Computed example of a mutant assay.
Amino acid sequence: MLESSDSSVYRSAHGLTITIRTLPGDGRRAYMCLAGEIDRDSSAILSRTVDWLTRVAPVSVLVDLAALTFACSALPNFLASVRHAVPGDAEVVLWRPRPEIEWVLRATDMAAIATIRGEPTGAGDVR
């Protein structure tokens, strides 16, 4: 894990890189980018990410999936953990999934716990 001065945390293991940070403002909005492949071997890095979200307790989480190239059941399991880690009224947005990743999200009914969006969310500049 590498933390930077702009509240960004970078984690990488087993073909998955996760970048998470709080967005400008009150610090209660989180941005997370998943890049690479997510599978069972990613469980430790995913668990540490959920721990970070629990500590931050954001009111919204934007999960950028554009760079995620492979996902198995580990993705919906992780997203369920994210949903449980943040306050009950927090918004969780799954943003820009590739078609094959969106199929996994829809097949596992992730729309029941998060909003799936392919377009900009209006959440401000997250880069």
Rank of each mutant, 00 (worst) to 15 (best):
R127V: 05
V126F: 12
G36I: 04
L79M: 00
G118H: 13
L79I: 07
D39A: 11
V86H: 05
W95N: 11
D41C: 02
Y31R: 01
M1F: 14
V9T: 13
T69W: 08
V61F: 05
R48F: 06
A35M: 07
A30D: 04
V126T: 12
R40E: 10
R106K: 15
H14D: 10
Y31S: 08
R28W: 02
Y31F: 15
R98N: 06
E119T: 03
S43K: 14
V92P: 01
T54L: 05
Y10S: 08
V50F: 02
D51Y: 01
R40T: 13
S5R: 10
P99T: 07
I101K: 01
R96W: 10
T69K: 04
D26V: 13
S7R: 13
A13Q: 05
R98Y: 12
V63C: 03
L105C: 09
I101R: 00
D26R: 14
E37M: 05
T108G: 09
A114D: 07
T108A: 13
T22F: 11
V104W: 08
E91G: 01
D26H: 04
I38H: 07
E100M: 14
V9D: 11
M32Q: 00
G118P: 03
D109E: 11
L105M: 15
R83T: 08
W103V: 13
W95A: 02
L53D: 01
R21A: 10
D109I: 11
S8E: 06
G88V: 14
D125Q: 06
G15L: 12
Y10F: 15
R96D: 09
G118E: 13
I101E: 05
A44K: 09
I18L: 11
L16N: 01
E100T: 08
V59M: 13
F78K: 02
G88R: 10
L23K: 03
D89H: 00
S73F: 06
V82D: 07
G25L: 10
E37V: 01
D39S: 12
P58E: 01
I113D: 00
A111M: 08
S60H: 01
V86D: 02
L2E: 09
G25N: 11
R48Y: 00
R21W: 00
F70R: 02
T54C: 08
T22V: 13
P24R: 14
V82G: 00
R117Y: 05
I45Q: 14
A85D: 04
P87G: 03
A123E: 12
A30V: 14
C72Q: 15
L68S: 03
A57H: 07
I38V: 14
L53G: 05
A71F: 02
H84L: 12
G122N: 01
M32G: 03
D6F: 07
L75I: 04
R29P: 03
V59A: 12
A35R: 05
L75S: 08
V56A: 03
S5P: 04
S73A: 04
A111L: 02
E102N: 12
S5L: 05
A30F: 02
T49W: 10
G122M: 00
Y31P: 09
V61Q: 00
R29C: 10
T49V: 11
L94A: 08
P97W: 03
S43A: 15
A35G: 08
R98W: 07
R40V: 06
E102K: 09
G124C: 05
W95K: 01
V126Q: 15
R117W: 14
P58S: 12
L68W: 00
P87W: 07
D39H: 00
A57Q: 13
S60E: 09
D51K: 06
S5F: 15
T115W: 02
G36M: 01
T17A: 10
